[in-house]
């Protein structure tokens, strides 16, 4: 267990950074969950609400930025403290981007007046739920300061890339078979891409958490990457 600082106000500031990050992560996870729900129910008014909610995530990022800046100026953090403060900046930045991607899903649901084909939508929502679980996992690794959990979250991204590739392939086939689905399917393609990107950001965050906990960069090669060549066959 980490000892407290002699100066308790310093601990209070560092704890505020952590609790804001966890809060922000929770909002992002929720933003994705809501977007997926709006997508599967084709609920445009809920989607409007989700779009509006995005500002809360942005506001938290600003708050975390200001706080870390203040800690660096006032306390000159070192070693593990320095890693937390610097990583907090980059995690908040990644979470903000994740929030944008989740919001983009809602934007499409809100504005698309065409039918989105059901079968691929169901697949996409499933992939989204997997990513949502990764977010939960990576936040958990932050709370528990566990590099092992962070690596677990990082590794899960392979499955997301797999699902994305399958969905991509399926959508191409659907479009080729029924040209009238092209508009709907291309919206779904973008949505799938948004979800896939969120998975990549989870990996970034997992790397930051690994660095916070161990002081070492996470050196890891994914066993599998998207092989776009496959798609030409």
């Amino acid at each position: 267990m980490m000892k407290d600082h002699i100066v308790s106000a310093y601990d209070a500031q560092l704890e505020l950074v952590s609790s804001n990050l966890i809060k922000m992560g929770g909002l992002v996870e929720n933003q994705l969950k809501n977007s997926l729900q709006a997508l599967s129910n084709k609920d445009t008014s809920f989607a409007e609400q989700i779009i509006f909610d995005d500002h809360k995530i942005n506001a938290l990022e600003k708050e975390i930025d200001a706080l870390t800046y203040k800690i660096i100026a006032m306390r000159q953090p070192l070693a593990n403290d320095l890693r937390v403060v610097l990583s907090a900046l980059s995690i908040a930045n990644d979470l903000e981007r994740m929030g944008d991607h989740a919001t983009n899903i809602a934007k499409r649901v809100a504005n698309v007046k065409i039918n989105l084909p059901d079968a691929p939508t169901i697949e996409i929502v499933k992939m989204g739920e997997d990513v949502q679980f990764m977010i939960k996992q990576v936040l958990d690794s932050f709370v528990k300061k566990s590099d092992k959990l962070a690596i677990k979250a990082w590794d899960s991204d392979v499955n997301i890339d797999d699902s994305y590739l399958n969905i991509y392939r399926e959508l191409l086939e659907t479009m080729a078979g029924n040209p009238e689905t092209i508009t709907g399917c291309s919206h779904l393609l973008s949505i799938a891409k948004n979800i896939e990107r969120i998975g990549d950001y989870v990996q970034n965050i997992a790397e930051d958490i690994h660095f916070i906990v161990t002081g070492q960069a996470l050196e890891r090669k994914s066993e599998k990457r998207i092989n776009w060549e496959d798609l030409n066959q």
């Binding site: 980490m2 000892k3 600082h5 100066v7 070192l78 403290d81 002081g215 070492q216």
Partner: peptide, 18 residues
Amino acid sequence: FSNPGNQKTQDYITGRFG
């Protein structure tokens, strides 16, 4: 100052001694 090997060192340089 970035990643000391010893917990005592880390506690001292980050102001946690006492």
